[in-house]
Design a protein around this nucleic acid. Structure first.
Lengths: 141, 141
DNA sequence: TCTATAATTGAAAATGATTTTCAAATACTC
DNA sequence: GAGTATTTGAAAATCATTTTCAATTATAGA
């Protein structure tokens, strides 16, 4: 989903379009990796210097509510945000450059259900994240 | 690994065995679900009333370092600790009673490597957690 | 285009979790 | 049992996040 669509989505929910929000949305949308609120603040201030950290938090809250971003959990912390991809709920993260790529893991559902069954569980959700080194980072060794 | 082994492990690393640590270790070891530092503090105080929250944090830090506990990430938060099971790195968590069960997912490694390959990654680690409802909770509906 | 108004803003204060500091208590070595 | 280095809990400090509030601004309607 493009930045324009995000902003339109925002409007259609009754929220106003401000420069502050535009800066946050654009920063998150164009980042190849998940960013913390503080990082978003730093980056988005280049575009809109008056931006306050509080507004970053508030905008992320709304973006999460509208399913436009998702929170990403990593060893270093659990408060980074990434543009959300519809339907594709799994992430592949580069341990070096932190780039995040979505992948479709639908074919794993059956295996997961079976594991649950073995332990008496009915599985309803899962969390899967793969970590590795991306091609680019391997080349720039 | 039993509580006694944990305590022995502690000693062999040069750490002292105190009542405070014993209370924390025993609380975590016998819990069927991941506990937050505050929860551990509350529970362990029944055994050792003088226990301070700070000591819970410090003990968990050491237990994590010795690989005796692991941090569990959940929707509600990422600061809960669970007794670690060797080799078995995946969790199945009941959404109702929060009970956590380890399972062996070694047969999934090949699938994960393949997913990575498709995107130019060499996968080195993964995070997998399944959520569902356990048998007991389904029966007590 | 202008105005009225409700939403949004940023700064500062408040909160809550975690960490640090420090003097008193204690486990362990000899 | 004494001496010493580790560990302790309370209080203070820190850090991320949330709340408060008066000033600013986007938007709907005139």
């Amino acid at each position: 989903m493009s930045v324009e669509n995000w902003l339109t989505e925002f409007r259609s929910q009754g929220y106003r379009l401000t420069d502050a929000r535009r800066a946050v949305v654009e920063t998150v949308a164009k980042s190849p990796r998940a960013l913390t609120p503080a990082e978003i603040h730093d980056l988005a201030k280049e575009q809109y210097p008056k931006l306050g950290l509080v507004t970053v938090y508030r905008t992320l809250e709304k973006l999460e509510e509208l399913n436009l971003v998702q929170r990403v959990h990593q060893e270093q912390g659990c408060n980074a945000y990434l543009a959300h991809a519809e339907g594709h709920q799994h992430l592949l993260i580069c341990q070096k450059c932190k780039k995040a790529v979505y992948f479709d893991g639908d074919d794993l559902n059956a295996s997961f259900a079976k594991v649950g069954e073995k332990h008496g569980f009915i599985v309803q959700e899962h969390w899967l994240q793969l970590f590795g080194i991306c091609e680019e980072c391997r080349e720039n060794e």
